[in-house]
């Protein structure tokens, strides 16, 4: 937990540092050449599952792609979509299994301001928001209920339990043009589930696109993209 707190504090400091540094550059350079408002579409493919699936001992997996538009190199509307799942057996032998599609829609804003005399760059430092959605089914199996006094034992299996989860994300990331039209970069995201579960309500351990179903979670994507 201490690591999580350190990470949150570091992330906030980083975000405020970037925003304040950005805010100090207030001089607006006059555009001498008119540019089109639409600057292209970038298709991103998330490479992080290569690492995160291994880190989770193959209990969870999540594959994601995104299409992001460049509007005036300031606004970056984005649609993200993917397929994720989990297959876990807890130490008490309770099994959880799910898989399903998820989608996110949102927008990023460029945090980089071009200095007057600087060489033009296509690299991006972005911050933005997402609204995520996943409709899926899950299995919760091998729940053993015992009562030592009445000498009762029963095993419960809940199959194809439906769930619809909506969540909100705050994201920050970078994209660097490593060769012409090919971009790579990170996105860090903090996810917060919308709506609260009732006490005792059955909830999925893992939500496609959201992750482990705590009230909030962190995620990291490492993407390679092509700008059309």
């Amino acid at each position: 937990m201490q690591k999580t707190y350190k990470f949150i504090i570091f992330s906030l400091l980083l975000a405020f540092g970037v925003l304040s540094a950005n805010a100090q550059v207030k001089k607006i350079s006059p555009d001498t050449v008119s540019k089109p408002w639409f600057r292209g579409l970038r298709l991103d493919l998330d490479l992080s599952p290569l690492v995160t699936t291994w880190l989770s001992n193959s209990e969870t997996y999540s594959y994601q792609a995104a299409v992001q538009a460049d509007i005036m190199h300031k606004y970056f509307p984005i649609v993200e979509f993917g397929y994720a799942g989990a297959d876990r057996t807890a130490s008490n032998n309770i099994g959880f299994k799910t898989n399903g599609m998820f989608g996110k829609i949102g927008v990023d804003f460029s945090l980089m301001k071009q200095k007057k005399d600087a060489k033009p760059t296509n690299n991006l430092f972005l911050a933005g928001v997402r609204l995520g959605f996943s409709n899926f089914k899950y299995d919760l199996t091998n729940i053993v209920i015992t009562d030592n006094y009445w000498n009762e034992t029963t095993t419960l299996n809940y199959l194809n339990e439906p769930a619809t989860i909506v969540w909100f994300e705050i994201v920050a990331g970078i994209r660097v043009e490593i060769i012409k039209n090919i971009y790579m970069g990170w996105t860090v995201r903090n996810k917060s589930a919308l709506g609260e579960n009732m006490i005792g309500e059955m909830t999925p351990w893992y939500v496609p696109g959201f992750g482990k179903n705590a009230g909030s979670s962190w995620g990291v994507n490492y993407a390679i993209g092509y700008m059309f």
């Binding site: 807890a90 008490n92 309770i94 959880f96 729940i143 209920i145 419960l156 005792g200 059955m202």
Partner: peptide, 14 residues
Amino acid sequence: NDRYYLSMECGCIV
């Protein structure tokens, strides 16, 4: 009610 869910670690209680 055997669907009173606690957590993945605790399972359900009746």
